[in-house]
Design a binder for these strands. Sequence first.
DNA 1: CGTGGTGCTGCAAAGGTTTGCAATGAAGTA
DNA 2: TACTTCATTGCAAACCTTTGCAGCACCACG
Lengths: 392, 392
Amino acid sequence: MGDTCVTATTSDEGAAVPVTIRDVARASGVHISTVSRTFSAPHLVNPETRVRVLACAEDLGYRPNRAARALITGRTHNIGLIIADIANPFFPPLIKAAESQARHRDYHVFVADTNEDPTAEEELVHALAKQVDGVLLCSPRMSNSLIEQLSREVPLVVVNRQVTGLPCVLMDVGQGARSAIEHLVGLGHRSIALLGGPRSSWTNREMRRAAGAAARAGGAELTMLGPNAPTEVGGSAVAEQVRRSGVSAVLAYNDLMAIGLIEGLDALGVRVPQEVSVVGVDDITLSRLTRPKLTTVATPTGAAGRTAVDMLLQQDIESPRGARGSGAGTALGVRRTTAQVMLQTDLVIRDSTGPGPYARPARPLAAPRGPGPHCPADPGIPTAATGDAVAS
Amino acid sequence: MGDTCVTATTSDEGAAVPVTIRDVARASGVHISTVSRTFSAPHLVNPETRVRVLACAEDLGYRPNRAARALITGRTHNIGLIIADIANPFFPPLIKAAESQARHRDYHVFVADTNEDPTAEEELVHALAKQVDGVLLCSPRMSNSLIEQLSREVPLVVVNRQVTGLPCVLMDVGQGARSAIEHLVGLGHRSIALLGGPRSSWTNREMRRAAGAAARAGGAELTMLGPNAPTEVGGSAVAEQVRRSGVSAVLAYNDLMAIGLIEGLDALGVRVPQEVSVVGVDDITLSRLTRPKLTTVATPTGAAGRTAVDMLLQQDIESPRGARGSGAGTALGVRRTTAQVMLQTDLVIRDSTGPGPYARPARPLAAPRGPGPHCPADPGIPTAATGDAVAS
DNA sequence: CGTGGTGCTGCAAAGGTTTGCAATGAAGTA
DNA sequence: TACTTCATTGCAAACCTTTGCAGCACCACG
C-alpha cells in the first residue's frame, strides 16, 4: 500500500538451454570421458584434442555442473561461513577476506547469519553439511559438546573460540584486554568496569579472565557488568549503571557497545573522556568516525578469515570425503591434523581515553610504556599469520 | 613471525559416515523409493510405514543429499545473492531480510561480494548459475545488455536497477532526492552540490535526474561532483573540492560518503551544518551515531530484500528448470512474468542540515512543509510492499 | 463372480559427471 | 619379429535421489 508502485508485464523469453558434457562430446566427436578429462585432468588428453574440445565447449557455453561433480567426487567446492550477526561491522572484513582466499582456491563461500541464536546455528550447520566441504563457525554461541558433535558431520573450523580437538583461529583478546587495562591504569584509573558481552562467548570469558588479572596486578578494582547484547543498544542500555557505579573507565566487550555506551553517557551529560574513559575491542571502521574517536583493541579480522579458510581446506585435502570403491562404511578413524592459531591483537590509542583521578600531574597526557601508541591511519594489524602460518 | 602462536596436535577421529537413503531403506525393510516418498510426498505412504521409516532415518541421522536431489529435480533450493560491497552497511539489513524470507520458504542463501567490480560480478553469476535456482543482483555494476544475457542462464531479480524485461526491485531515490533538495531549498540554500556515486549505478543516474529537476524548480543551482567511490574515503576525498565550490549544501550519493565528507570538512575547519549542510541516502545505522546526526533519505532495505526473494521464488515456480522426459532442448519460449516494484523512500531530518544563506529570518529553524520530520527512534520505513505487493 | 477403484509399494530409468580398467595404436627394445 | 612401454581414448559403473509406471492386495459394487 502507500505509494508503492507495481508494474507488471509478461514477455516470451527463451528458457535456458542446459548444455551438458554430452553436447560437447557430440560436437567435438569424442567420448564424454575425454571431455571430462579435458577439464579435470588436462594432462591426460592429447593437446590437439584438448584445444578442439575446449573450443567446442567455449562455443556452446558449456560449464561443468558442480552438483553432479559433487555427487561423485564428494567435494562441492563450497564452504559455509556461519556468522553470528552480519550487521556487526566486525564481520564484513572477515567475510571478505575469507571469500577472497576461497576464490583463489576455486572455492565459493556460503554466508549465513544466525542472529546470535544458537538454535539457528545448529540448524544451519545441518542444512549446510551436505552442500559444502566444510564450515567456518565464527563466534559460535552453542555449547562445546554440540560443536564437537557437529564436527563429526562436516569438517569444522572454529573462529573466536577454543574447542579441543578442533582447528581454531583465535584472536588474543586476553593480551588485548591486558594492554587496555594497563593503558587505563597508566592513565591513572583505579576503578574500572568491564562491560561484558554474551555469556556463551569465549571472547567474553577470556577478556574477564585477563582483565581481572591485569587489574589486580595494577592495583585497580574491576567491576563486571553484564552479560549484555553485543550491540550499540546493549552499550547505551548500561550507561546509567556505569554512571552509578562511579568508575572512571570502562573496557567494553566490543566497539559497538563502546560506541553505544558513549552515546548513552552523552545523553546523561557524562563527558568522554573527561569524566569517563572508554575502550572498545575490534577496531571496526566506525570507531575512527565517531566523536571522540575510539581507543580500541584492534583484532586482525582479515587474517582470521584467511587463516580459517586455509585451515579448512588443508584439513579437507587430508581426508577426502565419500571414499569410493570400498564396500560399506569403512570409516576407520582417519588421522586428522588440528591446529590452533592465535593471532595477535593491538591496542590503538585514540581520543576516548584520558587521564584518570590518579594521574601523575608531571606528564599529563603521557601514554603508558608497553604497547606504543599507534598512528590512527595505520590500523596496525600485523601481517603475520596468514595462511602459511598454519603448522601441520 | 610476530607473536603469532601456533599449536598443532593430531588425533584419531571417526570420519563422517555418510548415511544414504539406501541405509534407511535397508534398516526399515522397504524400498528406497518408499523412503524417498516419506520425505518428499508423505501423503503417498502408509502412516505406519511412514513412522517406521522416519524412526529409522532419525536413528541413523539420515539427511537427504541436496546435491543428488538437485540433479534430478533441477531445483537446488538455494538462491544466490550478489552484493556490491558487504562492508557497506547498506547491505546487511537487506541480506538479513532476504535470508530470513528465504529460510521461511525452505531456501538457503549464497552471499557473494564483488568489491564493486563488474567483472567479478559476471564471473560470480556464472559460477552460481548451476548451483542455485536464481540470483538476486543487488546494485549491479555491469551493463544492461550483459545482465539480460546472463538472465538467460539463470533466473535473475535485479535490485536497485531497472532492466526492461527483468523483475526489478527499486527504491524511489528519485523521490528521495527531490525531497532532500526541497528540504535544502526550504532551509534557504540556493547553491547545492550533488556528490555522485559510481558512474554505472542506476541509483546515481536517477538521483542526478531528480535532483536536477528539483533544483531547477526551486530556483537553486546544482553542481555535479563525481563520479566517486561510494565510501567514506570517496566522501572525504572531495571535501576540499566542496569547499572550493562555495556551495552551502551537499546531497551525497549515500550515507557513507556523506559521513566521509563531514569528516573531511571537519578536518578543513568547515563546520556542519553551520557552514555547509549535508544530506545522505540510505539511513544506515551509523548515520544515527555520528556527530552531527545525519539527515538522510531512508531506503527500505529490508523490504527490498524480502520482495526480491519473493519475486525470484514466484518466477521460479512458474518455469521449473530441467524439464524431464522431453528429448533434446525443447526450449520453446516460456511465458515468464516480470514485475517492477518501486519502494517508497523517506526523508529523515536530523542534525546535519541547517539554515542556508537565504533562510527567512522569521522562523529560524523551521523545517519546510512537505515531508514531515521523523522521530529518529523510528526509521519510518513503510511496511508496504513486502511480498504480497508483487503483482502477477 | 467379475469389474473397477483405491491405497500402497516396488521397479527401473534418469540426471551429469568422474574414474578404474581395458582397448587401441604407435614407438622403442631386444 | 616379438615383446614391452607409453600415450590416448572409450567403456561402463557409480554417486544419491526422484518419479512415471506397473503390480499387488483389498474392498465395494453390480
